[in-house]
Design a protein around this nucleic acid. Sequence first.
DNA 1: GCGTCAAGGATTTTT
DNA 2: TCCTTGACGC
Length: 725
Amino acid sequence: MIDVTDLLDPLNDAQRQAVTAPSQAMLVLAGAGSGKTRVLVHRIVWQIQVQGVSPHGILAVTFTNKAAREMRGRIEELLQRPTHNLWIGTFHGLAHRLLRRHARQAKLPETFQVMDSADQLRVIKRILQALNLDEAKWPPKQVQWFINAQKDEGVRARHMPETGDLYMRQMIAIYRAYEELCDRSGLVDFAELLLRAHELLRDNPDVLSFYQERFQQVHVDEFQDTNTIQYAWLRLLTQDKNNLFVVGDDDQSIYGWRGARIENIYSFQKHFPGHEVIKLEQNYRSTGNILKAANQVIAHNEGRLGKELWTEAGEGEPISLYAAFNEQDEAFFVIERIRAWIKEGGARADTAILYRSNAQSRQFEERLVQAGIPYRVYGGLRFFERAEIKNALAYLRLIANRDDDVSFERVVNTPTRGIGAKTVDDLRVIARDRGTSLWRAARIMLEHGMLSARAGNALAGFMQLVDRMAAETEGMELFEQVKRTVEKSGLIEFYQNSKGEQGEEKVENLEELVNAARLFDPAIDNEDNLGPLELFLAHAALEAGEMQGEDFDDCVQLMTLHSAKGLEFKVVFMVGMEEGLFPSLQSVEDPKRLEEERRLCYVGMTRAMQTLYMTYAESRRLYGRENYPRPSRFLREIPAEYLQEVRLRAQVSRPAAATPLKTAASASLSVSQYKLGQRVSHAKFGEGVILQLEGQGAQERAQINFKAAGVKWLMLAYAGLAALP
DNA sequence: GCGTCAAGGATTTTT
DNA sequence: TCCTTGACGC
């Protein structure tokens, strides 16, 4: 008899019910911090150990590589053995694997390469140029968004009606040209991976039935984030087998803007009539007050599946609310609190500052630097996104596939070798006329002597270089291959000669790339007969790598609310709780988007384990303009009993340097009768002295030091002040 | 080809 | 306000 103690003991009733349920379609509604990964992991191990399902017959899909890694790690830990043939991966990673295995049936060249979004944008810009379209009128970003949105819905250019308005017809034409170029170059963007993989299964019954039979159990994490094509793909795989096990939380759906369909979680119930729903509502992360407050906020959304988090932990502290004068004061307050936390022995890494938009990080960074507190900002450039790394990869990609136009354009003149825009333009024309790649076009032009001697020589030199590198490095070990390429391409030399520290850092990064190649273990997911180089390139495209700073150091965490999803911290600061910032101005008009903002708020609040601070500023400089936002509506949605206002103002004497408002300009703009230093009296607060004036007209405000009530900011229009002599 | 200047744009992010 | 991007000139 198998001992299932380890498997079931750590679970609560609902979790256990989900883990041990018979094979059937199942929707696990897992609230924040309710142990959803644990349920997935234990469910999979249960199937292997108790139900006798072979790991080979199990598929688990996640959104991020990190989640996939974590899940595999935990499964192996529980199983006490490696899980080689169990498929765990991201939607994109798995789609890529399918396409590699069935390239021909997917109508792709065996050597196809994956483009990241920056590559995609370059291609789009090229298309716009080729079509003679003005980028101002057809913003490349918007085109990119349009194309991806179509692909996310499974729509190709040829599916789109020719009838629409001019704008639509033009967009479709661009889309079509884009598809043609990608096909010619063997390039596949992220959305295309999913769409192709779906078409592959849909149009090839033999392939489909092979995988339908193989995968006895399909598991999906973060199901609320799936888009149309991802869900369609899942349904193809599991069609009549009722073997789809999804875990998700409709209240944590925050990626609607990039195609995620929260509706999938509702449709699931229609598409799989025999399904079971299990709710995980016991939260193991936060204290009672935080959870109750979060429950109240999210309750303002409509059409939820309905869940209420609860905890066995005590009430804990109320949420602290701080009204800052301005963004500087907000940062000051947050950093003071972090200081106090550290002073009491708390770890810096247990504190997180969460904001709605990246632009907000600056003031906190400045203060942290000032205070000498180490910190880490999430969301910078990733390793594989760095220019020098992409250049090196471009050479490698050309070695793997000469028709890769994006890579060709990227490095044809990097390092500079005298191939100018003119030559590349000529190449593009030929390539387009003949419907072929730049590489082939270059061949043709060289053979027909269509180039000037100088350009011709330079171009021939480049092509020989690539051919030579390919020949020389064939059969080499991967890292040796990468090393040679980096050197022979001239990139190392190029960056060494470029000036200063920047170049040095780039050389170091290139060395790091060689190192990454050395550490890269293709065996991990080489169930296919792919070469190590191809696998490495795919890895580079599908996993942009960690950000710069690793989290080895104990440092304060700064990130957007979006990137905080899935994480937890003892002390959380949600900053910038203001109308127009959070909820974002762009979202307030549309109820759907507003609800997504509210879910984001819910996600943010439920990150906090012990202490949650929420702050807003009464005045905020944004894009060079002073704003006087109102506190976020989400704050009003929290019942007062869970809130505690922090009153610091009278105690905080702000350093003069942090007071940008006392400028001559702002003082002179005060047309009113009030002056700095003027004594005034107020009906409620009594007598005081004006410390600062800012704004004008109806917006004019004064900071007043009241003898009895302390320092306050008041709108002059409403304050009803009387001037004293 | 590189450096300088001006204009425009500025949620949220993974793959 | 500030940063990125593109155009233009050496």
